Simulated scan of single mutants.
Amino acid sequence: MFASSKRVDSIVQKLLEPIERGQWAAGQMLPGQRELAEQLQISRPSLREAITVLETLGVLRSLPGKGVLVLDSTPPRLGDAAVESPPHAAPLENVLQLRYALEPFIAGLVAQSVDDNALSQLRLLVMDMREAVEDRNTQALASAYTAFHRKLIAITSNPIFLSVSQQTAGALARSEGPTLREPEHAEQILDEHETILRAIRRRDSELASRAMRQHILNEGDRLGLQLQLPPT
């Protein structure tokens, strides 16, 4: 389900290069997302995903109604913040077990601390997902999916969570797991993320955790996997 970590890293690097050159200095705003996506020849959901990564690294900050601010003109090398992706043979069930342990906690944490700016960005990503489902655009849906989950991580301001998510991203991208070609799967995934978002909007930590936990269980079902989990 997650987009390829290599693709995301490539987009992140495209953003880092002009920052390192001083083209976009600390304190400056990036060009608008529509203009920037056209310049880089990428989709806007993919751009948002890369911006989320750089927010987690402390390089950028999204400001409501203004755009994206450069915080650090000497950003860290991408490899310094990320760990290597798991080997090709990593069982997908193991990846989902990790997500089951981690992501409900993150969703609950976000529900406790989310501000209006971050909430607006989450809403926008769910709108991207809905548009992709309506257009039957598999790639756009995958990008918006990944950006949503990485945005949750960025809201926690915990870079270790980002490193773990990059591991799961690589494993899922290399898997033969859930494709989004099945219309009913895409609709289910959209509904699940709307449920997560509603819980976060209500600042209901328990409900957000439960909704995320159910989403990951459903991912296992869509993959034909029965996860081995401790009793609850």
Rank of each mutant, 00 (worst) to 15 (best):
P45F: 03
Q13I: 10
D221M: 14
R136F: 08
Y145E: 15
T232K: 15
R210D: 13
A144K: 04
R174I: 09
G22Y: 13
P64I: 15
L96V: 06
T56K: 03
R150W: 05
G58P: 05
A186N: 07
E35W: 10
E176I: 13
L122R: 04
L197D: 05
T146C: 06
H88Y: 12
I11C: 06
V68Q: 02
G170W: 09
L190C: 07
I160P: 06
K151Y: 02
A107V: 02
E93Y: 01
Q226Y: 13
A140P: 07
E182C: 10
E176G: 13
L152K: 00
G108Q: 03
T179N: 11
S73R: 12
R99V: 01
A118W: 08
R77L: 09
G27N: 09
R198H: 11
E184C: 10
Q41C: 08
I19Q: 04
G170Y: 08
S205A: 15
R77G: 05
L172Y: 05
L141P: 02
A81C: 11
N218Q: 13
M129V: 08
P159Y: 01
I153P: 01
E38K: 15
A144L: 05
V164K: 01
N94I: 04
G27A: 10
L78N: 04
E176H: 13
L109V: 02
D191L: 14
L229W: 08
A50R: 03
D115S: 07
A186D: 06
H193Y: 07
P178A: 12
P64M: 08
V95F: 03
R7F: 05
L57N: 04
Q33R: 15
V53E: 02
L229F: 06
G58A: 05
Q166R: 14
V110D: 02
D80G: 03
G170V: 09
M129C: 10
N94Q: 08
P230C: 09
L71G: 04
L122K: 01
M1K: 02
V114D: 00
L102T: 13
R202C: 10
S46R: 08
L190E: 05
H149S: 11
G108L: 00
R7D: 14
L207F: 11
I19S: 00
L223D: 13
K6T: 13
S143A: 15
M212W: 02
S143Q: 15
L69R: 13
I200A: 03
H193C: 06
L63H: 09
A89L: 10
A173H: 14
P91H: 03
Q166T: 12
P231M: 09
G27T: 11
A89K: 09
P159Q: 01
A208H: 09
L152Y: 02
W24S: 00
K151G: 01
L40C: 08
E55S: 06
I106Q: 01
D191C: 11
E194Q: 15
T232Y: 11
S46T: 11
S175Y: 10
I42M: 08
R222E: 12
P76H: 00
T56Q: 01
I51S: 03
A144N: 03
P87M: 03
P231N: 13
D80R: 01
T146F: 00
F161M: 10
S165K: 02
E38I: 11
L69F: 11
G58V: 01
R34I: 12
V8H: 00
A154V: 04
A186F: 06
A132P: 07
D116E: 15
T74D: 09
R198S: 12
I19W: 03
